[in-house]
Simulated scan of single mutants.
Amino acid sequence: MTSSGPVLTDDQIERFVTDGFVHLTEAFPRELADECRAHLWRETGLDPQDPSGWTRPVIRLGGYAEPPFRRAATTERLRGAFDQLVGAGRWHPPVGLGTFPVRFPHPEDPGDAGWHMDASFTPPGEQGYWLNLRSQGRALLMLFLFSDIGPDDAPTRIKVGSHLDLPPLLAPHGEPGVEMFRFCTELDERGVLDSPDRPVAPATGRAGDVYLCHPFLIHAAQPHRGTVPRFLAQPPLLPTGPLELERPDGAYSPVERAVRLGLDRT
């Protein structure tokens, strides 16, 4: 499935390569976000008008692939951006939006707010989630906003440009890759995960916005200090194959270009 034309400007694409993400406003209709959010509220079993019932900092709701969620994930605007960042014919149309970590205003630490990158596959005979230099199993990390998210509403924290730090550290692990927690430990020991050299950007926006992120981008959750619960999904965009970092025709996607930039192959 392909789109009918470009969505992102040349400047947005170049910033994706260097910064690791692009904020796509109005990626799906706000009315659709409202419909999906109402469904998710019912799934929580909580009353959106009664904060006394919001006793936990986060509730995780498992995979959603009902028609409204599929429509939100496959708008023409999103398909166009997928083509521009990953390449036409190099991604599978999303069939749903996976789990939703619903974050509530709460004084306690949610317990899942550490810096990390998302892994994407499990090798045969292994356990856990792994990642490798060619990003097997993940073309993009995506943040779908199903509620308005301001600075106090637990926006995902993004380490700007951090995706460029990972390729030279992933390269020694070769095609087999490395288990995510082992790799996070390695990055932490090297001072990469919380590097002060990488500024932090909060993924704020309005319901219907989507952040399209490089699969190697380091990010983190944070406590909710606002008043309105935050609804967000962070599914992967699945690729048709791993990244190709040595293309004879030089037709690299922006995702591949960023990896090559991290490896100093430009």
Rank of each mutant, 00 (worst) to 15 (best):
Leu85Ile: 00
Glu244Lys: 08
Pro229Gly: 04
Phe82Thr: 03
Arg60Ile: 04
Thr185Arg: 14
Ser253Arg: 13
Pro199Arg: 07
Cys36Met: 15
Phe21Pro: 12
Gly80Met: 03
Pro167Ile: 06
Gly125Thr: 09
Asp197Gln: 12
Thr55Asn: 05
Gly20Ser: 14
Thr122Cys: 03
Leu140Ser: 12
Pro196Met: 12
Pro105Ala: 03
Gly205Ser: 07
Asp83Trp: 03
Glu175Lys: 02
Pro202His: 13
Lys159Trp: 05
Arg190Cys: 01
Asp50Glu: 11
Pro48Phe: 14
Gln234Trp: 08
Asp197Ser: 12
Arg77His: 05
Val58Ser: 12
Val178Phe: 09
Asp47Gly: 07
Ala73Asp: 04
Thr75His: 10
Ser162Met: 00
Asp153Ser: 15
Ala72Pro: 08
Arg230Ile: 06
Gly114Tyr: 10
Leu46Asp: 05
Ala258Met: 08
Arg182Lys: 09
Arg77Gln: 07
Ala65Val: 02
Ala113Ile: 04
Trp130Asn: 13
Ala221Tyr: 11
Pro242Asp: 02
Gly177Leu: 09
Cys184Val: 02
Gly20Met: 15
Glu246Phe: 08
Glu76Leu: 04
Pro101Ala: 06
Leu85Met: 00
Arg190Pro: 09
Tyr129Asn: 03
Gly226Leu: 01
Thr266Ile: 06
Arg225Cys: 00
Gly5Pro: 12
Leu169Trp: 05
Tyr211Val: 15
Leu133Gln: 08
Gly128Pro: 08
Lys159Leu: 13
Thr156Cys: 11
Ala113Met: 03
Leu97Gln: 07
Pro155Val: 01
Asp118Glu: 09
Thr74Ala: 04
Thr185Cys: 06
Gln234Val: 07
Ser120His: 00
Gly111Val: 05
Gly96Asn: 03
Trp41His: 13
Ala139Leu: 11
Asp118Asn: 05
Ile158Ala: 11
Pro48Lys: 13
Ser120Trp: 06
Ala171Val: 00
Asp34Lys: 14
Gly114Ile: 08
Arg225Tyr: 03
Gly45His: 12
Asp50Ile: 06
Pro51Gly: 13
Val178Gly: 11
Gln84Ala: 01
Glu14Phe: 14
Ala154Pro: 12
Arg225Trp: 02
His39Tyr: 15
Ala139Gly: 11
Gln222Ser: 12
Thr25Trp: 12
Pro215Ser: 04
Asp165Arg: 09
Pro202Tyr: 08
Pro110Gln: 01
